[in-house]
Amino acid sequence: MPDNSRNIYGVLAEFDGPASLLKAARQMREAGFTKYDCHSPFAIHGMDKAMGLKRSPLGYFIGTVGLTALVGMTYFIYWTSAVDYPLVISGKPYFSYQAFVPVIFAITILFSAITATLGMFILNRLPQLFHPLFNSPQFKKVTDSGFFVSVEASDPKFNKVETVSFLQTIGATEVELIGDEQ
């Protein structure tokens, strides 16, 4: 087992396929690990459940921002066309809300979409240009044929020796320690 580290970031274990990765994820959760992650070249159905991941709070952020944009834009368009600079347009009332519906709708969608995109980046802690897992040459396989479980050393259950042997008992084909420096 290669040990190319002074400060240990964690452990990286390779598994031989999506099914064994799914099984390993479940066993990791049952064993009580909290700071672990699974890496695969494609999304695996049921992984969220196996890892016990909670639903993302992103929807609530988007809902809040969307609603704020809706109310804010309605008020803004009311203020510009009926209060600050009232103009009669084609004989219609100042506050002709019908005409504003497409704008209010589009602004709501726009702000929601921006929140969704930015929120996704923030919640995923992106952009992240370097990650200690890149220290492992093996990890390059994750984009085409590798299935990995990584456990961080900051996990309260982490123990350099026991975690490695535990990973081996749940079917890891290869286990290595990862340093946290470049």
């Binding site: 084609s90 004989g91 219609k92 019908q98 005409a99 519906v101 497409p102």
Partner: peptide, 12 residues
């Protein structure tokens, strides 16, 4: 429903 209404309301 709104698309139908909107154009008619606008054109008047």
């Amino acid at each position: 429903g709104f698309s139908q209404y909107f154009l008619m309301w606008y054109a008047n």
